[in-house]
């Protein structure tokens, strides 16, 4: 293997990693905060992509790439909060919340995916990228769209990290995640924080959808594959800390890039899942984490 190949593998691993980090963030924050696993997360990704297409593309409202992306992310925030209200809140105090929300979010995913199908049809679409062309920097050749994506995601992740660690609202969200009752007794608005958390997760998933939609083709089920990858990431990383799923996302991205190069496209998912099962057997709390919430 020569150096340019290595660089291109690392580069595609990085691109995958930032996408996975975005997707895993939403899953992990919902998991830690509400104690549930959101199977509708993949559908959020698809919905975000379609909304961005609708707002941004010349064939639809034609507001342009960035306006479309911003509007889609904002809309996904609202949709996420509404989904939480409809699919999760009814079981807030139910002892079987984990199982019940598995089926409601699975059903929610079916509903959203089919609604996308009804509204936009099954035909493949693509979001026109913000920038065309390539950036060349020494040995690094990169599509401009990918560079934009990496930059935006990096900024987003830093912003999210700062929000969760430094702002009172972010700290309150983390507090609710760890002890709902103590948070209530402190006068925090737990229901609002839950809705905000779900909204935030959906918005970030929507952003991931925007990027995926502009580098690949879109279909109503486009979120299924990313959801599975995000699942691997979350398990590998553990959910104790915000940062651990980010590390895991890059690890998975790079492993996937190498595995695709050496083992082939077909076997790559098997490699990832096998690796994940291995990690779970050896270290159930994840590579980077401490098991924190096992319901």
């Amino acid at each position: 293997m020569d150096l340019p190949t290595l660089i291109s593998i690392l580069q595609s691993g990085l691109a995958l990693g930032v996408l996975y980090a975005l997707m895993a963030f939403g899953l992990a924050i919902v998991w830690t905060t509400l104690g549930i696993f959101n199977f509708a997360h993949g559908a959020f990704i698809a919905a975000g992509a379609y909304l961005a297409w609708q707002f941004g593309n010349a064939a639809a409202f034609g507001l342009g790439y960035w306006a479309g992306a911003v509007l889609a992310v904002a809309a996904m925030f609202v949709i996420g909060a509404v989904v939480q209200l409809l699919l999760v809140r009814p079981f807030e105090r139910h002892r079987d919340i984990v199982l019940l929300t598995v089926i409601t979010t699975l059903a929610g995913a079916t509903i959203i995916t089919n609604l996308l199908n009804v509204i936009w049809g099954p035909r493949m679409k693509q979001i026109e990228p913000a920038l065309d062309g390539e950036i060349v920097f020494g040995l690094v050749h990169m599509r401009s769209q990918e560079a934009v994506m990496i930059a935006v995601v990096a900024v987003t992740l830093f912003a999210l990290g700062w929000f969760l660690l430094r702002t009172p609202l972010g700290r309150s969200m983390r507090a609710v995640a760890q002890n709902r009752e103590a948070a209530q007794l402190m006068g925090l608005d737990v229901r609002l924080l839950y809705a905000l958390t779900f909204g935030l997760a959906a918005a970030v998933a929507g952003l991931a959808g925007v990027f995926i939609g502009s580098i690949r083709f879109m279909s109503p089920t486009m979120g299924d594959d990313p959801l599975q990858k995000a699942l691997v990431v979350v398990i590998l990383g553990g959910v104790a800390r915000f940062t651990s799923s980010v590390y895991a996302a890059f690890a998975v991205g790079i492993i996937e890039a190498f595995s695709t190069y050496f083992v082939g496209l077909y076997w790559t998912p098997a490699v990832l899942f096998g690796l994940m099962i291995l990690v779970l057997i050896v270290k159930p709390e994840g590579l980077f984490g401490r098991r924190q919430r096992s319901v």
């Binding site: 998991w31 104690g35 549930i36 696993f37 984990v98 598995v102 599975q228 699942l231 691997v232 979350v234 398990i235 899942f273 994940m276 099962i277 779970l280 159930p284 098991r291 919430r293 096992s294 319901v295």
Partner: peptide, 11 residues
């Protein structure tokens, strides 16, 4: 336990 079982069995 719990969610971890869901995730690993899906995997």
């Amino acid at each position: 336990d719990g969610i971890y079982v869901i995730l690993v069995t899906i995997a």
